[in-house]
Write a protein that binds this DNA or RNA. Structure first.
Lengths: 196, 196, 196, 196
DNA sequence: AATGAATGAGCCTTCATTCAT
DNA sequence: AATGAATGAAGGCTCATTCAT
């Protein structure tokens, strides 16, 4: 096993460890030491590779965002109509990979991070815009622009709401139940428009 | 200039300061010193009255929760039908007092706190249960039990979702817009049921 | 009940409380607040009367020392021979008033205080000298000066040793057992001399 | 200039520094900063290696207790009769290493610590039991069980008494003088028994 | 490539003490 | 005579970060 490429492995391990640690604690109050320990390396190495704790957090965010993006794209490719594409985005949000509690708790933590870190806010904004564009673009083929925007807003809020409630372990439907509620919302909105 | 009866004043001031500080920073990473400074007292006094940082946080949570509860109750008293009562709860959530950005950011921070503090989790659970009961009870007069529960879940998630998005300053409708979207959701759900 | 004389009462109460608090904790790490609370007054009053925490400690020491001195004197008055007088001093050390665990623990704490406070050291020295003089004076009537000094040293050490062991709750004889061991020591020393 | 293997050195240095600091002040009211300063390191390092102030204290106690134990064992090995073995224990107590004023003052402080810390109490109890067993076992070969226990109690108290008086810098015989007084006590007790 | 060693900065918390009433 | 109000000062502890190896 060549030592070559260790850097990529370490970085990835550390990012994983960071997500798990954040997810497990449900907050950003995790120490670099704890992350490094979980990744099986020294805290010094974490700094060596990332430069600072914030950079580790940002890398973890990018990972989650990019995993989600990849999943969305894959599902979009398989969809064959605007409605299916919107449903694909919803399905991705409640996919088993994304809706794991630790991941969701990390999401929530990153929302908090975005209040302090400009870069975190930027990452989140980029992701939110892309998602919104996607939703609006597909909805636009079914309803008027204004309505499309409104529905997109509602869908996004509903998804975020279920996320936060899931993270808090509140009494909440299971994954499929939540997905169905969101899809129902979509359906109702579209029906209402078409019956006008 | 010490005067008697300052304790209540100081406690209140400190709780206010804590909410503002938490709201401003968007997280619980605020120092007791900063809170005390904002309240115009020494950090020692904050500990003198509250015993610990956590107790200050919990007091702040109780304040927000209780303010919200009071507002809800007032609005419920003025409502005259089940639908109006559900709308009253929605309206309270988007009332000017509750939907102030700092308050909402504090809410979010408390959600995070609930992941670490048992007492915070308990407070939140009590509040959530009460809200849920209220929604379900009133919806129950309009639709069947199962549907009432589903609608309540959807409404709560939608509200929480708009909260989080508001806190993040994402591109999001204004207060009235959000309220309308939630009310529309309620209306659609009810119509769908009655048209069955 | 006239308010006159409250000062004396308060001072006495506070000194009692200090001894109890020190005795209970087994160290000087007691707060003025705790002492005041035990005495049923405000911490401010404690300062008002004593000026500082150290002064409270010193007053407590004086009280214990003076109580002991009074007891010794009383017992000495009742003794009718040098041997009886030495035994009286021993008996006083193991008298029920002095050998209460709290008092003994306070003694120990004051020994520690004497390492930091010049005044405490002085008080202890005065007491030790007086005790030593008393012992030596009476022993001197039975044995030579040098021997008297040695026996006095041994007695004092033995008593202090039992005190410390008592305070530590180590496996140790009961009060009477200890007293007997000390008296035996005295007896053996005297016999040894007389048999020379 | 970081080198590997410093941990053992630092720990040892810090324990030394703690003993000196405690011995110099005659109490446990020493700061971690002062200990660290004396050891030539930062306060943070002391916490890094020991975790807490209490652990530093306990480590210091263990060091003193173990040094004493080692010395006792060495002396016991060289003794060739029960009496010599008892004398060896006495001699160890007044050996130059153990009877250094700072060490003795630290002893006293640890006695106080034992009143608050369960672990300190345990350490002291273990040491006291072992010493007692040793004394009783050897005395048992010379006198009956009950007498052996009494003599052991007397010896232990006498030694502790001289310790405390030495720590307080009271007018007290020198090391050899004290040792002789304790040995005399032993001798007198044994003679008394054999002359029965 | 990786780490043990080490620290500065900062936070929570405690407490003796002061002061106006 | 007594206290509630308030704080300065100090200590324990944590942690991100640096550095030499």
């Amino acid at each position: 096993m060549p030592k070559v490429g260790m850097e990529a492995v370490r970085r990835s391990d550390l990012v994983d460890a960071a997500i798990q640690e954040i997810g497990a604690s449900g907050s950003l109050e995790v120490t670099v030491s704890a992350i490094a320990r979980r990744a099986g390396v020294s805290p010094a190495l974490a700094h060596h590779y990332f430069g600072s704790k914030d950079q580790i957090f940002l890398a973890a965010m990018r990972r989650i965002l990019s995993d989600f993006g990849t999943d969305v794209r894959k599902r979009l490719d398989e969809a064959e109509s605007p409605v299916e594409r919107v449903q694909a985005i919803i399905a991705a949000s409640f996919g088993p990979d994304q809706f794991d509690r630790e991941i969701v708790a990390a999401w929530l933590a990153f929302y908090v991070l975005a209040q302090k870190s400009a870069e975190a806010a930027r990452l989140l904004r980029v992701y939110a815009r892309r998602l919104d564009s996607n939703l609006v673009f597909n909805l636009r083929q079914l309803v008027c622009e204004a309505t499309a925007r409104q529905i997109a807003q509602g869908l996004a809020a509903l998804i975020d709401g279920f996320y936060i409630r899931h993270a808090l372990q509140e009494h909440v439907p299971d994954r499929e139940g939540m997905k169905k509620l969101v899809c129902d919302y979509l359906e109702m909105c579209l029906e209402k428009e078409s019956s006008k």
